[in-house]
């Protein structure tokens, strides 16, 4: 569905950087995003392109993981779009139904697109969120890893290695 033959490497890098921060923002916990981004977003003048609202996304899977695509079920998302005074447009998509979180995500996205705010917002908002997400992920994974086993079949021809 996406065929941007004309896209340059620079544009591709920009797209993948933006996709990366979208992922961090959408997976943030509402409280954490608010704590980190409320200051930066405070006083930013914007108009709504799309007011924060809640909708559904149909989640799809594949038979056997690799086969025919099917509809598994829907999930809730909150989304919003803003336009800053200089015309920069930001979009926010977050899991579940927190409209404030979607609003903040959209403003943060717009600020990240502004060259003069980009580095500051990355450092103040995105990287700390990434860190928190990473910590949670690793802790879960270490708990799972504690239940890892090696099974041995006892007899029947096959010797345990």
């Amino acid at each position: 569905m996406m065929a941007f033959k004309t896209e340059t490497d620079a544009e591709q890098r920009a797209t993948s950087r933006r996709a990366d921060w979208f992922g961090i923002l959408s997976r943030s916990h509402a409280g954490e995003l608010d704590a980190l981004a409320a200051d930066a977003a405070d006083g930013v003048a914007f108009e709504w392109l799309r007011r924060p609202h809640v909708g559904l996304v149909m989640v799809r899977g594949r038979a056997g993981g690799t086969g025919q695509v099917f509809n598994l079920g829907e999930m809730t998302v909150a989304r919003a779009s803003v336009r800053l005074a200089d015309g920069t447009v930001g979009h926010g998509y977050v899991q579940s139904r927190d409209k404030r979180q979607a609003e903040l995500a959209a403003i943060v996205d717009a600020l990240l697109l502004q060259e003069h705010r980009h580095d500051e917002i990355m450092a103040k908002v995105i990287e700390p969120l990434r860190q928190k997400e990473q910590t949670r992920r690793i802790e879960k994974s270490r708990k799972a890893a504690s239940t890892k086993v090696e099974f041995f079949t006892m007899v029947r021809g096959e010797n345990p290695a």
């Binding site: 569905m1 996406m2 065929a3 941007f4 004309t6 108009e47 709504w48 392109l49 799309r50 007011r51 609202h53 336009r83 015309g87 920069t88 447009v89 697109l113």
Partner: peptide, 19 residues
């Protein structure tokens, strides 16, 4: 038109005020 909308949506007008 497969090209994505440019992110500078300066010209984009809002939709319904109360959807």
């Amino acid at each position: 038109s497969p090209t994505p909308m440019s992110s500078d949506g300066a010209a984009l007008k809002p939709g319904f005020a109360d959807p």
